[in-house]
Simulated assay, not measured.
Amino acid sequence: MAAPAQASSGPAQQPPGLNGWIQFSWPERNDSRNYVVDGRAGESHQYGAYGLWVTNTTSSSVIEDIRIVLHYLPAPSSWSPSSSSAWSNLSPIGTHTFPEGTHQSYQMTYTGPVTPADGVTNLVNDLRFTGAARVGGSAPSIYIDRYVTVDGVELAFRRRVGTNIYTPLNTNTPPNMPNTPTVPGGRRSSSAAEEFEAVGENAALG
C-alpha cells in the first residue's frame, strides 16, 4: 500500500533541467509531407499546458546555455527558418546512432529573455519549424535532448518522442525520474513517468 502523500510548501519535484511540452507531427506512412515541430504557445493539451520551463530554480539562479537537439530518422530534406522571437534556426550538427539506426541531428538555441523564479522559470515557447520528408512503412524515429546550465551545473536528458524512454546525458542529471511529475499550474514534466505522449495518430508530445 502506498504511503500517504506528505504536505509540502514547495513545488512538486521534477527532474532538474529544461522541461515542458512541444508537439511533434509527421506524415502518414508512405507519404511525402512535412514534419512539424510546434511549441503551440498559449495552448493546452489533454494532459496540461504546452510550454518550456526550467525546474528547481530560485529567483537568484543563473540560467544559461539553453538548447534543444532533435534527432530524426528519416531526416527532412531541410527545415524552415525560425520565426520565433526566442529560438534560433534548427541547424544540422552531424549524426547520432540509436537502436533504430543513424539519425540526423539538429540543434536550436534559446536567445530569449530569462527571468529566474522560485520553483519554475518559464521560457518563451513560440517556436515552429516544418521540414519536408518522406516516411516509409513505419513511423519515424525521433529523439529530443534538452540542455540547460543552472548556477554553473549543466543538466541534460534525452527522451524518445512518443515514449517514456528517459536517459540522463551526464552525471549531474538524476538517473531516474521522480514519482511526482507535476508542478504548480497543472504543468507536467516532459519526463513524467506516465504513458501519455500520444496526441494523434501522427503526432506526439516530447
Rank of each mutant, 00 (worst) to 15 (best):
V150R: 01
S83K: 14
N56D: 14
R67A: 08
V150N: 00
Y35G: 04
Y50I: 03
L169G: 01
G186I: 10
R128F: 09
N170H: 06
P92L: 12
S105E: 10
N122I: 10
A5Y: 14
I142D: 01
S138V: 05
S105H: 13
V69S: 05
L127R: 02
N34M: 05
P184I: 13
H45P: 02
I22L: 15
A75M: 00
L205W: 00
P15T: 15
Y50K: 04
F98L: 13
G136T: 11
N56Y: 09
V54N: 01
T121K: 02
E28L: 14
A5F: 13
G48D: 07
S8Y: 10
P113T: 15
G162N: 05
R146M: 07
S80I: 08
E28C: 13
P4R: 08
E194A: 11
T180V: 11
N164R: 02
P174E: 03
H71N: 12
T173N: 08
A133S: 12
R40Y: 13
A75T: 01
S105F: 10
N202Q: 03
T180Y: 11
Q104L: 09
D151V: 04
L52V: 09
G112T: 06
T171Y: 12
N176L: 15
Y72D: 00
L127P: 01
T57I: 11
W26L: 04
G101W: 11
P116T: 02
H103Y: 04
A86H: 03
V135E: 06
P175T: 14
G152L: 09
N19W: 15
T57D: 05
E195C: 07
L123H: 01
A86Q: 08
G94F: 04
P174H: 06
G20T: 07
I22C: 06
N170V: 08
G48M: 03
N125E: 05
I66R: 00
S189Y: 08
R67M: 06
V36D: 03
P74E: 09
H103R: 03
Y166I: 01
M1E: 14
T109A: 11
P168N: 10
A5P: 12
I63P: 01
P76T: 00
Q104S: 13
Y72E: 02
N164L: 02
S61N: 14
W26M: 07
G162C: 02
I142Q: 10
T180N: 13
G17M: 00
F157S: 02
E195A: 12
V114Q: 10
Y143P: 00
N89T: 12
D118K: 12
T149E: 05
G10N: 14
R134V: 09
S82F: 03
L127K: 04
F196E: 10
V199S: 02
V124W: 06
L73H: 09
G137M: 06
A75L: 02
N172W: 03
I63T: 07
T173F: 05
G119Y: 02
G162D: 01
S83C: 07
V148E: 01
W21N: 04
